[in-house]
């Protein structure tokens, strides 16, 4: 019984290969929805497109200019900063929320529904809600901040206020996802672990630190990956709330990209931009994943 859970070796040539036919539809549809568009983007990224019939091969020209573009660079740093803040806020907050949720009883389902509520709202609706909520004149949130602590708050004019608004909105929207994942992880810890902690007179903090946290590693890896990818590519909500403003204060990479691609119709630079964007997300996810799973061994 000690050797359970071994992984079967990928010894495909000696095995039944017919199952691969079942994968075929996926391969075809992925080709149409992902590979072909991606190839089009690759195609654009190395050409200067004037009209669809009138284009010049420019090599890596666009890649060079995009990486040197100060606007892109500052948007890159801004997005990275945003993702970092999102992770730093949402992961601990989500875990804390999960720890506070009841483990059994009638309140379990009530807590689950309440926590999951923000996840059920479409992105652009979230944006609209917060656009109104955070307004100083008619929004409850904005008004309260302006009148109760008496801070001058206006996200349409002040870049810090705009940043905070977008950040708080993301935390409100996505912390529940982390919380639900963490809650599922916590529920899977067998009862004797908590009993042992009581017997060993472990404090609540020690119980969390030495029993709950180590056993959350798997789900937190997933939560971090999901939240990083998602926040690094955030588009809809800031587009609705701030439109990237004021100035460039909330102009993240995706907003800048759509401005270049759709607004200015610079397909070449936009193609190069997309590819670099895509590559960066891939690489960073890989790094996160490797670091997080390695450190667990």
């Amino acid at each position: 019984m000690t050797e359970v859970g071994e992984e079967p070796r990928a010894d495909l040539k000696r095995r039944n290969n017919r199952a691969w036919w079942l994968v075929l539809p996926v391969v075809v549809s992925v080709a149409f929805t992902a590979v072909i568009p991606l190839m089009t983007v690759v195609n654009f990224s190395v050409q200067d497109v004037f009209t669809p019939s009138d284009r010049i091969f420019v090599g890596l020209e666009w890649f060079r200019s995009i990486t040197r573009d100060p606007e892109v660079r500052s948007a890159f740093v801004r997005t990275l900063l945003f993702s970092a803040q999102v992770l730093l806020l949402e992961i601990p907050l989500g875990v804390a929320l999960a720890v506070c949720m009841p483990r059994r009883g009638v309140w379990v389902s009530v807590a689950l529904v309440l926590v999951a509520l923000p996840l059920l709202i479409p992105w652009n609706v979230v944006g609209t809600i917060w656009q109104i909520f955070a307004r100083g004149d008619i929004g409850l949130g904005g008004w309260a901040v302006n009148h109760v602590p008496g801070v001058d708050f206006n996200y349409t004019l002040d870049s810090t206020d705009a940043w905070i608004t977008v950040l708080v909105m993301d935390v409100w929207h996505w912390t529940p996802l982390v919380a639900l994942l963490a809650y599922a992880g916590l529920r899977s810890i067998p009862e004797p672990y908590f009993q042992a902690a009581q017997i060993d007179a472990a404090s609540a903090w020690a119980t969390f630190r030495h029993i709950q946290l180590p056993r959350l590693r798997g789900v937190l890896t997933i939560a971090i990956l999901l939240r990083f990818m998602d926040s690094f590519m955030i588009y809809t909500e800031p587009f609705v709330v701030t439109g990237g403003g004021p100035g460039n204060a909330t102009s993240f990479l995706s907003i800048l990209l759509s401005k270049i691609a759709v607004g200015q119709f610079d397909l070449g630079p936009a193609g190069a931009f997309s590819l670099l964007y895509f590559l960066f997300v891939q690489i960073l996810c890989y790094v996160f994943f490797t670091v997080l799973t390695r450190s667990g061994r």
Partner: peptide, 20 residues
């Protein structure tokens, strides 16, 4: 004994995991 490899042997005999 527990770590003798009994389960591994059974799994190979069943075809649940291929031998090297």
């Amino acid at each position: 004994p527990m770590t003798a490899g009994k389960t591994t042997l059974m799994r190979v005999a069943a075809g649940l995991s291929p031998p090297d």
